[in-house]
Design a protein around this nucleic acid. Sequence first.
RNA 1: CGGGGCGUGGCUCAGCCUGGUUUAGAGCGCCUGGUUCGGGACCAGGAGGUCGGUGGUUCAAAUCCACUCGCCCCGACCA
Length: 386
Amino acid sequence: MYMKWSRYFLPTSKEPPKDAEIISHKLMCRAGMIDKLSSGVYTYLPLGYKVLRKVEGIVREEMNRTGAVELLMPSLQPASLWKESKRLDEMGEEMIRFTDRHRRLMLFGPTHEEVITDIVRRYINSWKQLPITLYQIQTKFRDEMRPRFGIVRAREFLMKDAYSFDRDEKGLEVSYGKMKDAYKRIFARCGLDFSIQQADSGVIGGKFSEEFVAKGECPELEVGHIFKLGTKYSETMKAFFVDADGKEKPAVMGCYGIGVSRIVAAIIEGNYDKKGIIWPLSVAPFLVLVIPVNPEDTTIINTAEKIHSDLESNGIEVLLDDRDISAGMKFSDGDLIGIPLWVVIGKKFIEKGKVEMKIRKEDRFFEIEPENITQWISEYIKREGK
RNA sequence: CGGGGCGUGGCUCAGCCUGGUUUAGAGCGCCUGGUUCGGGACCAGGAGGUCGGUGGUUCAAAUCCACUCGCCCCGACCA
């Protein structure tokens, strides 16, 4: 749809809020992407939500490509399930709990091994149904002792969690390998520079885990963590299947998490300059920013609107900065929110019928005829790879 | 959870130590009019806070004391 800045909701600011420490947090606040409601609890404003959805889309595509199947589990869970897995006390205060009106202890899921194992034990009975990997993209709740760095360590955040079930260890190796490959593709597509490290499995348990750590100044990061769980949950929760030899065996599990909201921060940590964010094409909230320098000049504004609708009809997401403010402010805001390509319509259009393109990441302008814009952009996308 | 810090218009902050000319200020933002319009313009006018909350000390509290709530930082912890 036609998107004009004046009709959008994009509150940028010159100053970062006092409590922002790391660059991604500062920029997300200044670029009008997020708003803090409470410690570790954030609203994704339209621009931030758009980026979040882009990342989510990449994660979903790559999960589906491996043959994993998406479902959606509830955030609300009965504590009884966690008693069964013996993790109720282990997770402790980090789990947000409450007693419902029937005096039943409930909790907001910090992770979903229990729920998925419960589903699988009731529906998967035969080796013929294996292997299977199920995943969801969902809001998780963790009452962090100390929320930090904006959305990097939040108490409510978006996570993709996948769970694989195999007949045996060999199968787990295959499922695990597929996920690991998918993770590499996901982070690469998001423009993240990352490393893989062996890690402590913590409360999740299992015998082996690796974490994906995004490079940057931020001391956190970890953006993904994959585990070979083995039969920890399937045995304690009795998720058995009948194998080809007629014997009952526990499913061999793996689980695979990605902090979707954390990826957004990690992308910024690795893609910014003094002026603001520089979105990789793959996750940019808009691909093109159209700037009519003087919106009172009808020739300029008409041209801007025409370019805008031409691009839109070619399936390119465009934001038109139709605000009645100085050009300098538009440029500053444009740099801040990091839209990859700009089309600037100003005096050069009046003088010689040319507009200017700016490539954000190169911080470079060049002239172009208005009728060539769409083609140039299509080629640029192809060249840069989206 | 231990240690430290901070809460004053939408945002960033000054004032607090040495209570009383402060009808509580500034910058940014916002509104109106005008001049501007290629890198966060300028002039003039204007709106907006009772100083996180409660209680106390005092003739008098944004300023002192106590409690409380919220937020941030360091540490420990962290799929």
